[in-house]
Design a protein around this nucleic acid. Structure first.
Length: 262
DNA sequence: ACATTGACCTGAGAGC
DNA sequence: TGCTCTCAGGTCAATG
């Protein structure tokens, strides 16, 4: 589901398709997805503008408009974007449709309406207001920074990683993956990690997020050695062959290898 | 200060 | 076939 690598892929998709094209009009049908902005206001800002550039922080995609404000998109569990020309190709569940004056369109598609569409003055002020933590791919995320933040937490590792106010961009699937690759149990207490574990987690985090982004967050193109490919009942560990365990953390299904993750 | 639960949403797949 | 049930997991609010 759209986590950091997926959203980064969508960002690059926008970069390579529809920047600097004049926006003729938009259609919005996203009742509960608009936050602090009306459909009319959104239309007013986008109509006659062009997309100037993009940015990303965690799971949020930002698109700067030539009129100043930035369009903010959050994809929830099922959101995606599609750029195309033929009107007949408009995907089902299109909630936001941008018509460019050259006839092309950008569709914001959310099968479930779990997502967000809004405006902001900029990515930095938005991240501040939403209290987002450092982005998972921020080069400033050193092992020391990681260790310091983890040391102040009482809770478990899985929920720490998924806390967007701690590190922004990690969700259920990649959170499990980096814990697996670092050899840390999801229910390990964050403050109990030693320096070695923090180093391994930092490395696994960078590796998982970078490789997944490079492979366009396509599970088919990610290594078989990843836990990602074993998220099902009765699966075995790709490393040691032990039975993968399945538990619930904060209502979300967590997979881990009881032998590799101690 | 933490974890847990349910609501929000909708489609896919299972089971009857 | 067609119904109902469960599950998927991002985020938030309410509760323990």
């Amino acid at each position: 589901m759209p986590e950091l690598p997926d959203v980064e892929t969508l960002k690059r998709y926008v970069d390579s398709t529809c920047l600097h094209r004049s926006i003729e009009d938009i259609d919005v049908d996203a009742p509960r997805m608009l936050r602090d902005v009306s459909a009319a206001k959104l239309r007013d800002v986008l109509k006659g503008a062009a997309f100037a550039k993009t940015a990303r922080h965690g799971k949020f995609l930002f698109i700067e408009t030539s009129k100043g404000p930035w369009l903010v998109l959050h994809f929830g569990m099922t959101g995606s974007l599609r750029y195309y020309k033929e009107p007949a190709k408009t995907p089902d569940h299109t909630r936001l449709l941008v018509h460019f004056s050259d006839g092309y369109r950008l569709a914001g598609v959310w099968r479930r309406r779990l997502g967000r569409i809004c405006l902001t003055d900029g990515p930095a002020v938005f991240a501040e207001a939403q209290e987002l933590g450092i982005d998972g791919l921020d080069p400033g995320l050193h092992p020391k920074v990681l260790g310091k933040t983890l040391g102040g937490r009482r809770g478990g590792m899985k929920s720490a990683l998924m806390d967007q106010g701690f590190i922004a961009g990690i969700g259920n699937v990649y959170g499990d993956e980096m814990l697996f690759q670092a050899g840390i149990r999801p229910d390990a207490k964050a403050r109990d990690l030693d320096d070695d574990q923090i180093t391994r987690l930092h490395r696994a985090m960078g590796h998982v997020l970078r490789l997944a982004t490079e492979r366009q967050a396509d599970p088919e193109r990610l290594p078989d050695s990843w836990l990602l490919s074993r998220r099902e009942e009765g699966a075995t560990c790709p490393r040691c062959g032990a039975a993968i365990e399945r538990t619930k953390t904060a209502g979300l299904t967590t997979y881990f290898c009881p032998r590799c993750q101690s």
